[in-house]
Amino acid sequence: MDVLSDVITVARTGRPRSAYVRWHAPWRQQFASVPGSAGFQVILEGRCWLLSPHSEPLQLAAGDVLFLPHGSGHTLADSPATAATGAVCSPEDAELPGPYTSDSVDRLGRRGPATVVLCGAYRLDPSQTHPLLLTLPNLIHLPADQDRHAELHAAVRLLAAEVGNPRLGTSATVPALLDTLMMYILRIWLAEQPARDNTRGWAAALNDPAVAAALHAIHRDPAEPWTVATLAVEAGLSRATLARRFASMVGQPPLSYLTWWRLTTAARLLRETEAPLRSIAARVGYTSEFAFANAFKRAHGLAPGAYRRRR
């Protein structure tokens, strides 16, 4: 596994939700702030406005993609002047006809010009959220650009077809396509960060060949008895240079990140598998179940067995 793949695999919990929604002007839909979630909006047809407390009103057109990695509240409307009506959509309110509540098609509004939006949401486990996600801005806007973002728009078309016309296999296809969509959004955003600040942050780390090599080595094989020296070999740098550059970009030293990743991986295995504790300990680099249990309790506040039972 590489870092970006693991970011999505580990952070997500439960089933992602999506819907294909058609509004007819005049309309205005408010989306509640939901900490511990990540949402996206893709404009498939027509135009609308994004109204957010974090930015000026922004007009959106077909092909535009919005990603809200922290579940920030926002509003979509046919015009900034349209008055607020109807209920606030929230993933927690199953009875509301909101776009986060079902994988079905919802049609709201009456006779005005239509806007079609593909909406979705992920639930994230706050205790497992990768630090890369924590550093993202409240809103990522990727304007329509078929030439530059061809893979992203291909994923959008496939997802819209599945959600707008459910068929045999849709229940399995939609979560995989949502993962793909999120992957392309993060990949594009990371690649397009300004080069002027190339010494700090996860965008810098993943765009730096040496630091990225060390990170990928940790994610590829967390059970390996890594040291700063062996990671420096992977990176092609001296130990001192890797340690300094890694800490500056990632925010913690290489071995601290290694420990965090091992115990985060262990937590996922405890939640999602019935593997014995001894086996999980070995898979994340601990030579004894006792050492693993002590490290896990320090990180998560519970012994591994109690954590598994609670989850």
Rank of each mutant, 00 (worst) to 15 (best):
L152R: 14
D145V: 14
P91M: 00
P143H: 09
P69G: 09
T82Q: 05
R111K: 07
A32G: 01
A25F: 14
R107Q: 14
Y122I: 03
T129D: 15
I43W: 04
Y122K: 00
A61Y: 08
S90I: 08
T85Q: 13
L136T: 05
D93G: 13
L108Q: 08
D103G: 09
V105A: 06
L139Y: 10
L124Y: 08
L133P: 00
R123V: 05
G36M: 04
G120Q: 14
T135P: 11
V34I: 02
N138E: 05
S37Q: 03
R148L: 15
L152C: 11
P143C: 10
R148A: 15
A87P: 11
Y100I: 09
S90Y: 09
L136R: 02
V105C: 13
S33P: 08
P99N: 03
A25E: 07
A25D: 04
H130I: 02
V117C: 08
L142R: 12
G86C: 15
L76D: 13
P126A: 12
P113S: 11
H141K: 15
P131G: 11
A150F: 07
A94F: 11
F67S: 14
T101W: 02
A144V: 15
V116F: 13
T115I: 00
G36T: 07
P97V: 08
R28Y: 03
L66E: 15
H74E: 06
P131F: 04
I140G: 05
R111Q: 07
L132H: 01
S72T: 06
G86F: 12
A62R: 02
D93E: 05
A81L: 14
A38R: 03
G109K: 01
L152H: 08
E56Q: 00
P97R: 06
V117N: 00
G86Y: 03
A114H: 03
L60R: 01
L68Q: 10
L68Y: 07
H54P: 06
S127H: 13
V116S: 05
Q128K: 12
L142P: 10
L51N: 04
G46Q: 04
A77L: 03
L44M: 02
T82G: 02
L139H: 09
T101K: 09
L133N: 01
R107G: 13
L76I: 01
R110P: 09
G120N: 05
R107D: 15
Y122M: 01
Q30K: 06
F40E: 01
V88I: 10
S72Y: 00
H54G: 07
A61V: 12
D64T: 00
L51K: 09
T75R: 12
L139C: 07
D106K: 12
T115C: 11
A87K: 12
D147Y: 09
S52L: 09
P53K: 06
V88T: 04
P35L: 05
E56P: 13
D147C: 13
G109R: 13
Q30M: 08
H130N: 12
I140V: 12
V105P: 04
F40C: 03
V117E: 04
